[in-house]
């Protein structure tokens, strides 16, 4: 009986099990597109409605409103990612909360928390111009490491965010634009790519 076993099938199952058990592949691509749209909308509101520009010293914005706006964008983006990933996992008959997603959260959690605290410190120290850069860099580091545990393409997105972040630190006068490019446009392109490549 064992002779007739299809050894190719054995190898295919081993490969699939290794990937399924160590990678979280339910991360939704569409939620990346949504996160990008929220970020672009947020940047638009901040710049055109509140007249907020982190690059210029005499920003007239009401700071508490900008913080509120940032949190709103963050909550919407994370909310969509969790909800759509949950639906995607459900469709594949998998659980969202598995060993791979737990490890993924652990890996992105540390750089993101450090970045968030650093941004708050900059905010209270009055160095608002550096915040777009700091958020891009720490987010990029988180994505770069996360790529090993989910789609590898996430690492490329991470490198791009780091590069944009470094540019934003140097060209502070364009930091909001670079932030919108990273969190907005790059997310949308990444999301569409993942959707076409892995979700159809």
């Amino acid at each position: 009986m064992s002779r007739e076993q299809d050894y190719n099938q054995d190898l295919a199952e081993i490969r699939s099990m290794m990937e399924r058990s160590s990678k979280f592949l339910s991360l939704s691509g569409l939620s990346g597109v949504l996160a990008g749209l929220y970020a672009l909308t947020g940047a638009y509101i901040a710049y055109y409605i509140y007249d907020f520009d982190p690059g210029s010293a005499n920003s007239s914005a009401v700071e508490s409103d900008i913080i509120l706006l940032t949190f709103l964008v963050l909550v919407l983006a994370i909310g969509s990612a969790v909800l759509l990933s949950y639906k995607k996992a459900h469709k594949k008959g998998e659980r969202v909360w598995n060993s791979a997603s737990k490890r993924l959260l652990g890996i992105v959690g540390i750089p993101l928390s450090a970045g968030a605290v650093f941004s708050l410190i900059l905010f209270y120290a009055g160095s608002i111009g550096l915040i777009p850069s700091v958020t891009l860099i720490f987010y990029g580091i988180a994505l770069y490491s996360a790529g090993r545990l989910t789609f590898n393409e996430l690492s490329v997105l991470g490198l791009l965010q780091i590069a944009l972040g470094l540019n934003a630190a140097y060209f502070i006068e364009h930091s909001l634009l670079l932030w919108a490019l990273g969190f907005g446009v790059a997310h949308i392109i990444y999301g569409i790519y993942i959707h076409i490549r892995h979700e159809r």
Partner: peptide, 17 residues
């Protein structure tokens, strides 16, 4: 074979996983 494949790429896994 599945158990071995999963444990080969994870440090540890519990029974339910």
């Amino acid at each position: 074979l599945g158990i071995m494949s999963a444990l080969a790429v994870n440090d540890t896994l519990d029974f339910n996983s």
